Amino acid sequence: METLLRELAPQVLTALVRHHGGFDTCEDAVQEALLAAAMQWPVEGLPDNPKAWLITVASRRRTELWRSDTARRRREETVFARSVPDVPEVSAVDDSLTLLFLCCHPALTEASQVALTLRAVGGLTTAEIARAFLVPESTIAQRISRAKARIKAAGFAMPPPAELPERLRAVQHVLYLIFNEGYTASAGSSLHRVELSAEAIRLTRQLRAQLPDDGEVAGLLALMLLTDARRPARVSADGTPVPLDEQDRASWNAALIAEGVELITGTLASAPIGPYQLQAAISAVHDEAAHAGDTDWAQILTLYELLRTVSPGPMVTLNRIVAVAMVRGPTEGLAELDVAVADPALADHYRVDAVRAHLLALAGDRAAARKHYELAARRTLSQPERHYLISKAAAMG
């Protein structure tokens, strides 16, 4: 039932906002309707049309909220209970895409886009979002409140055609951020926040269903599936991260790998190539190797060269350098790393030290590798990664 409610939540919110306006009030009304459903449906049974039931209840609650005068609400209670006031038409069309576009409005900060998307489209409570990102609930509440205020004047509608490509890129980026934070938490005691990565995959599946011909949407979904397939092997019994080359590949999710490979193979053959497709292709090469030693690093390096051209960035730079070392040797990788660290975006980033330590270990300089593993451990905010880096430093002797 929880899955059904999360799927219906954005559709019900869309119906109310489109009909009544007032994003904030409508969103509160929908949350109360979802709560009512969670309490009543297990006892009374699932209604014939769950979406219509939620819209009716949310519409009534929205009207109650709008009538802020308690005395007047009491006088009207009898009449109100006998009718359904101005309930919006139940559409068979899923307007989740419109809602996603609204939540990723360019007037909002990236953090606000993420929070509002999880709240309005994902159906997560403010408390759930706060726990996922390890920030106070009041901080998330403020972000969501400010976001609603900023988009109030925008109205509920798809952006003009000229703005669609840029807005779609923002939607994809927000979903990508949500997935990455769930797959490798930036801080805290757990490496994974499964609720976030699962929500990102669910929403991206919805986006793919509504935009089946978009190659980058397909690439983003494939990337998530191929990456998440490795999650069962990423953490040891004590919570320490397990590097890719040491993972038990038999525990990888074969069904997700098969779906992801099929998806990226099809879209690469039929759509213009973009950064999400290239990242998915790299993940596919890793996932299709039965053993770490079977990995086609030359193909991965070629894909990173393309990705560096299409969508350069600090993490692309570091990952490409690892591929260079695997193909041409650690000495060349270290030389490229010395050049790359001039990028301010990489200054003092713990991954620079982690990559340097890895390459130094490959080159046989264990003492220097230990030093940089220790530096990386001090700089990361993730407790599982810190424990892993400390263990790697200790293994260097």
Rank of each mutant, 00 (worst) to 15 (best):
residue 1 M to Q: 06
residue 3 T to D: 12
residue 8 L to D: 12
residue 9 A to G: 14
residue 9 A to S: 15
residue 11 Q to N: 08
residue 12 V to P: 11
residue 16 L to K: 04
residue 18 R to H: 15
residue 22 G to H: 05
residue 32 E to N: 05
residue 35 L to P: 02
residue 35 L to E: 08
residue 36 A to F: 12
residue 37 A to P: 01
residue 43 V to Q: 14
residue 44 E to L: 15
residue 45 G to L: 14
residue 46 L to Q: 00
residue 47 P to D: 10
residue 57 V to K: 12
residue 59 S to C: 11
residue 61 R to H: 12
residue 66 W to M: 12
residue 68 S to H: 11
residue 69 D to Y: 13
residue 70 T to M: 15
residue 71 A to L: 13
residue 80 F to R: 15
residue 88 P to C: 13
residue 90 V to F: 09
residue 90 V to E: 12
residue 92 A to R: 15
residue 100 L to H: 07
residue 103 C to E: 06
residue 107 A to C: 09
residue 109 T to Y: 00
residue 110 E to V: 15
residue 111 A to C: 00
residue 121 V to S: 04
residue 125 T to M: 02
residue 130 A to E: 00
residue 131 R to H: 11
residue 138 S to H: 08
residue 138 S to Q: 10
residue 143 R to W: 01
residue 149 A to S: 06
residue 152 K to G: 06
residue 153 A to D: 07
residue 154 A to Y: 01
residue 155 G to S: 10
residue 156 F to P: 08
residue 167 R to P: 03
residue 169 R to E: 13
residue 170 A to M: 04
residue 171 V to L: 04
residue 176 Y to R: 14
residue 180 N to F: 06
residue 182 G to Y: 01
residue 182 G to P: 09
residue 193 R to E: 03
residue 204 T to D: 07
residue 207 L to S: 02
residue 210 Q to A: 14
residue 212 P to T: 13
residue 219 G to L: 07
residue 220 L to T: 01
residue 221 L to I: 05
residue 222 A to N: 13
residue 229 A to C: 02
residue 231 R to C: 10
residue 235 V to C: 08
residue 239 G to A: 11
residue 248 D to R: 04
residue 249 R to C: 07
residue 262 E to M: 01
residue 283 S to R: 10
residue 287 D to W: 02
residue 288 E to L: 13
residue 296 D to F: 05
residue 303 L to C: 05
residue 304 Y to G: 12
residue 306 L to I: 07
residue 308 R to Q: 12
residue 310 V to S: 03
residue 320 R to E: 01
residue 321 I to V: 06
residue 323 A to R: 05
residue 323 A to W: 01
residue 325 A to D: 02
residue 328 R to V: 13
residue 333 G to T: 03
residue 334 L to W: 00
residue 336 E to M: 15
residue 343 D to Q: 04
residue 343 D to N: 06
residue 345 A to Q: 07
residue 348 D to Q: 10
residue 355 V to E: 05
residue 361 A to W: 04
residue 366 R to M: 13
residue 371 K to V: 15
residue 380 T to N: 08
residue 384 P to F: 05
residue 384 P to Q: 05
residue 391 S to Y: 04
residue 391 S to G: 14
residue 392 K to A: 15
residue 397 G to Q: 06
